[in-house]
Design a protein around this nucleic acid. Structure first.
Lengths: 150, 150
DNA sequence: TAAGTTAGTTGTCAAATGATAATTATTAAA
DNA sequence: TTTAATAATTATCATTTGACAACTAACTTA
């Protein structure tokens, strides 16, 4: 197996994933929520409850900017903060009922596009897809380890 | 196979791909090239020669903004325009020698991170990874078709 | 308890990006 | 041959995003 060739394949693959992800989400109406704010909401939805620091680190947004954007979201009633019992400096963030239903709609939209793409897939196809994702997520796209590291 | 469950797996997978892609590229020194400009260069590198319209459509940047950002890149000597012989309105864009070596460095950096992630993989592993990417790119992450369509 | 560290906030500034209108030149269609 | 459509440019403006400094409060460690 030529590693160089595998790398080229990976570049093409990653490009396709980005492209398809964009296509699957692009016609969901964000209203006056900005892309960065939506990214934060998505992260909160999946990982709630989360702290501000966690959002900041995972979404690669500085603490001041995270704080600012999150404030806009809470002001709009999309998420809620509550004090961490174990550490009074910390605040946990979760979606409000409104925020939850907004994100439910977003995910429903994504899932519709997703199911459309798989409309002609057989049971065997779906199984192969699930296995393929698992293979990649356990190797190339495994998270939580660094190379050079800063 | 539960489609709902597969969707959740896909969300997790896509998140991992985005995360790892970011990690693999983040410590490459962009100098004073902005992220959007880098995205354009990457697209040109892979698909050259390309027209302005193609960049605009594929990178989802309006024509005026594409034109503006591309002008900055050509002014810096990173890419070159040349007239399309078949249509005098069109201009093809390709990387200059300088732009080419910049992108070579960028890809080399990515590849280094890539190979590091696969450093413990056996021949059999690499084969499974290649096959997995192929499976997904032929199904879920197939490009060039739309659902609702605008 | 003093000093240092962590979590988060507020304010301000500059740069990057997105959006729109108006324009030229060229090609395609009626 | 007028008309409409396409490819690209320029100019302008508003918004978004990123970066930095200064700050408070709470926690940790020596």
């Amino acid at each position: 197996m030529d590693n160089k060739e595998l790398f080229h394949q990976a570049v093409s693959f990653i490009t396709a994933v980005h492209q398809v992800t964009f296509d699957m989400t692009k016609d969901f109406e964000l209203g006056d929520i900005t892309p960065v704010q939506y990214g934060m909401l998505e992260y909160i939805a999946v990982s709630q409850p989360v702290t501000l620091s966690e959002i900041s680190e995972c979404k690669h947004i500085s603490m001041p900017n995270t704080s600012r954007e999150l404030k806009k979201l809470t002001d709009r009633g999309l998420c809620e903060k509550f004090d961490a019992p174990e550490d009074k400096r910390k605040q946990y963030i979760r979606l409000s009922a409104v925020g939850q239903s907004f994100m439910n709609a977003a995910f429903a939209h994504m899932e519709k596009e997703f199911q459309y793409r798989l409309r002609h897939s057989t049971e065997a196809d779906l199984k192969r897809i699930a296995e393929a994702m698992q293979v990649l997520q356990e190797s190339l796209f495994q998270e939580g380890f660094k190379s050079g590291g800063a």
